[in-house]
Simulated scan of single mutants.
Amino acid sequence: MTTQFPVIDRRVISMRWGDMDAVGHLNNTYYFRYLEQVRIEWLQSLGYGIEPDAIGPVLASTSCTFRKQLTYPATLEITIELEKLGRSSLKLRHHFYRQDDPGTVYASAEVMLVWVDYKAEKSVPIPDPIREAILQAAPQA
């Protein structure tokens, strides 16, 4: 597995039978659900779950390029890679791999997160512990 951006985390997801579409491969909407799940798990591992009365990330943009179909059964490894770390925004790349085929990228995605005060609906700086965890995982950032 080689990536262009520093990998700050990796997460594993097992595909479910019901995640497939009518032609037998992973439904395109589930790529985005899986991305959401790996980001939420990553943030929770840093001690920052989503709390509606606090601050946290909102999704500013996302895209996914489907390279090779994913079929059930499969255990996927999805990377979280740092593309850009801003004051209040974080641009991430993700790559989807099958654990039984780790050299093949099945999909790649890009996500822009912006930290906000949910009640005030204004951007805020990314919390220092998250910034420090990112910089520790990707010191060249």
Rank of each mutant, 00 (worst) to 15 (best):
residue 1 M to R: 07
residue 2 T to C: 01
residue 3 T to G: 14
residue 5 F to Q: 10
residue 5 F to E: 11
residue 8 I to Y: 06
residue 11 R to F: 00
residue 12 V to W: 06
residue 14 S to G: 12
residue 14 S to I: 07
residue 15 M to A: 12
residue 15 M to C: 08
residue 19 D to M: 04
residue 21 D to M: 03
residue 23 V to F: 12
residue 25 H to Y: 05
residue 26 L to Y: 01
residue 26 L to H: 02
residue 28 N to R: 00
residue 29 T to L: 03
residue 29 T to Q: 02
residue 30 Y to I: 09
residue 31 Y to W: 07
residue 32 F to N: 10
residue 34 Y to L: 04
residue 34 Y to S: 01
residue 35 L to W: 04
residue 37 Q to A: 13
residue 37 Q to L: 12
residue 38 V to I: 15
residue 39 R to K: 06
residue 42 W to N: 09
residue 43 L to Y: 11
residue 44 Q to H: 10
residue 45 S to N: 09
residue 45 S to D: 13
residue 48 Y to M: 15
residue 50 I to T: 11
residue 51 E to K: 15
residue 53 D to S: 13
residue 53 D to I: 04
residue 56 G to H: 06
residue 58 V to K: 09
residue 61 S to A: 15
residue 61 S to F: 04
residue 63 S to G: 13
residue 63 S to Y: 00
residue 64 C to A: 12
residue 65 T to C: 11
residue 68 K to V: 14
residue 69 Q to Y: 00
residue 70 L to H: 03
residue 70 L to P: 07
residue 71 T to C: 10
residue 73 P to C: 04
residue 74 A to N: 06
residue 75 T to V: 12
residue 76 L to V: 00
residue 79 T to E: 08
residue 81 E to P: 01
residue 84 K to G: 06
residue 86 G to A: 15
residue 86 G to N: 14
residue 88 S to M: 07
residue 88 S to N: 10
residue 89 S to T: 11
residue 90 L to H: 03
residue 92 L to F: 08
residue 93 R to P: 07
residue 93 R to M: 13
residue 95 H to S: 11
residue 96 F to E: 00
residue 97 Y to V: 02
residue 98 R to L: 04
residue 98 R to T: 00
residue 100 D to A: 04
residue 101 D to G: 09
residue 101 D to P: 11
residue 104 T to E: 14
residue 106 Y to F: 12
residue 108 S to M: 10
residue 111 V to D: 02
residue 113 L to D: 12
residue 114 V to G: 05
residue 115 W to L: 02
residue 115 W to R: 02
residue 116 V to D: 12
residue 116 V to C: 13
residue 116 V to S: 11
residue 119 K to M: 08
residue 119 K to V: 11
residue 119 K to C: 05
residue 120 A to P: 09
residue 120 A to L: 14
residue 122 K to N: 10
residue 122 K to V: 13
residue 122 K to C: 08
residue 124 V to T: 14
residue 125 P to G: 06
residue 127 P to K: 08
residue 128 D to Y: 01
residue 129 P to H: 11
residue 129 P to A: 10
residue 130 I to H: 11
residue 131 R to N: 14
residue 136 Q to F: 12
residue 136 Q to V: 02
residue 139 P to D: 08
residue 139 P to N: 04
residue 140 Q to I: 05
residue 141 A to H: 03
